[in-house]
Structures are given as C-alpha cells and as structure tokens.
Nucleic acid binder design. Structure first.
Lengths: 157, 157
DNA sequence: GAAGTACTACTCGGATAAGAAATGTCCGAGTGCCGTTGG
DNA sequence: CCAACGGCACTCGGACATTTCTTATCCGAGTAGTACTTC
C-alpha cells in the first residue's frame, strides 16, 4: 500500500501552473522548479492530459496548461490520473475456492472483505475529492504568504 | 496504489481460525482450504504473529492460533500487519527544493499535499478499524448461513 | 521591400532500459510423538 | 508390565529466486518561429 511518488509531483506542478497563469509551460521548466527529472515528470503530465485535467501544446512556445480553472479540479482527480483510479483492493475471490467453495453463481453478494475495503476506499476518495486545487492554493498561501506571486514571477521572467 | 494480495489471504485465514476454534492449525492446512501456496501464506502469518494477532507453535500438532478473541481484533490491525502500517503517501518535500525553496527550518508546518493525503489516510484507517473480525464473521454467516459450522467441520475432521 | 521557402530549435509522445518491491520457493532449526529397548 | 531413550515426522522461521510494477531515460514526429533567398 504505497502511493506513487508522481502524485506529489503532479499536484505541485498543477499548483504552479495555476499560479503562473500563462498560456503554456513546458515540462522541462516545471521540472526545473522542483529539480525533478524532466522526462519522467512529462510522463505524469501526459496522464493528466488523458484525464482532461491538462492540455498539451507541441512545438516552440508549447507546453502544458490547465484545462479547467483550479476551483473545478479536485485533488482526487489528480491522484486518480496518476495512480490509475481503480480500487486498491482487488478481490481474488479465494472464498469460492477450496472445499466449501462452489460455482461462481452460488456466490451472489460481494465478499465481506471486499465490502469493507470498498467502504474504506470510498471514505478515502471522499476526503480527497473534498478539496479543490483552488483551496489547496489558498491554504498554501496562508502558510507561506506571497508564495503564489513568487511562483508567478519565476515562471514569467 | 495497490493493496497486497496477502491481505485477503490473512483476513480469510483469521476468520477460519476463529471458526475452527482449535488449539492450533498449521499454515499448510489453512492454505489448503483456499488452495493457496502454503509457504507464502506462512510468510503472511508470521507478520501477524509479530503484531500480536496470532501466536505460533512449532512441531507436530503445532500451527497458528488467534492470540485474542475475534471481537478484539480489527480489520485495520490485520491490514497493517501485512501491509506495513505506514502512511501510503511519503512526502519528498519537493517544495523545499528549487528557486523558492530554502533551508528546512524555514518550512514549519506540513506540506499542504501531505496534510490532505494524511487526512484521507486517517479516514481510510478509521473505516477499517471500525470493523472487528467478530462482526465480519457475523456478516459472512448472514450472507451464507451455516458457513461457520462447515468451516469448523472441515478443519476438525 | 515583400513574399515565399527551407531550416532550425523546441515541444510532446511513446518506445525502451534499470531498479525496486512484491510474490513465490526452498531448506534448516526446533519440537513433540511413537516405537523400541532394557529393566 | 513400565519407564527411559533414540529416531522420526512435522512445524515454523528465515534465507534465497522469480516475476511484476514503479521509476527513469532516450529518441522520433510534429510544430512554430526565423533567417534567407528570390522576385
């Protein structure tokens, strides 16, 4: 049970994109801001494009930009884009095997283990979906006043 | 973000141990019930021993048994024993790096991303900790009446 | 001077390696049981 | 017949392969800007 490292990269990069507020920013520059491997960050950003969170522009003056305003993007969406978005628990239905098993049609409801882990997973998702990027930005600026402006200046110089 | 397969094995095996209600059951027999690789299940059960959920007995007539009554063991404990129990999100503090970074002492509070993922993680744990093995057993028997008795008979024959 | 054109530098995108972690396997140390042997 | 002893089969426990997934890297396709040539 371990969350990909790319999640942290993706969220911070989205925040930077929102603060910079430019037409487009190349992956290499986003990576430079946090001293990350550019090619690998690029891979994560591609995933965000496929989920409609970012859009990409090729060629000179190209790069990535937010497809929606930060208030319309939740942390959950970003995590799901990077991580894959399926339930972390994949039930192998081992209850159907062995002496007290039987044909699949004799097991109607979900496995009890599956039920509980699914509930826990939903609680987790609900918590992540309750925060938009705009809220995260506001929270970060409360913690470090002027951060947004400094980020914008760095990306626009 | 993917939960280990051993979680399903561990929970089902604990339920079987509780239903069988014997002195001790060897890992090989617990594995046979679900047609699982015995040596690998043994590995998972060892982890449960280290966390004080099971206790092990060597030699003939040996095996594993529940260290506590099923009403005093939560699903969370079993999952933590198998999975490791640490926060799935490990913050790399990339915010401290790059042009707007600085020495660690200038960053007092937790990273905003860390705050949110920690909250989500706690919600997930709370949900898993809310169910004891006894409740899971009752729920499983509601779904498949007589299951507990059949399990006990199989392990005691 | 202006328009057309070839060139160059830059970007994403996906195909390709390297490393880490989970999954699976094997054998040794220890322990209780059982048959055997001697009294 | 009873007790002590030696061997044996069974169990866990940790060390050792194998497969899968994450992490990282590289190169090609496409694009916009730019300089150059030509009219």
């Amino acid at each position: 049970m371990r969350m990909s490292e790319g999640v942290e990269w993706a969220i911070h990069s989205c925040l930077n994109l929102a603060w910079a507020n430019r037409e487009a920013i190349p992956a290499a520059r986003l990576a430079a801001y946090h001293e990350l491997p550019a090619a690998y960050l690029n891979k994560q950003l591609q995933a965000l494009c496929q989920r409609g969170i970012l859009s990409s522009i090729s060629g000179p003056r190209g790069g990535f930009r937010l497809e929606r305003p930060p208030g319309a993007i939740t942390v959950m969406e970003v995590v799901a884009a990077v991580e894959g978005g399926d339930d972390p628990f994949t039930c192998q239905e081992i209850r159907q095997r062995g002496p007290n098993g039987g044909p699949p049609e004799s097991f109607t409801g979900d496995c009890v283990v599956k039920q509980i882990t699914t509930k826990a997973d939903l609680a987790w998702r609900r918590e992540l979906a309750a925060h938009t990027l705009a809220e995260v930005m506001a929270s970060a600026e409360r913690q470090a006043p002027g951060l947004g402006e400094r980020v914008r200046d760095w990306f626009n110089r």
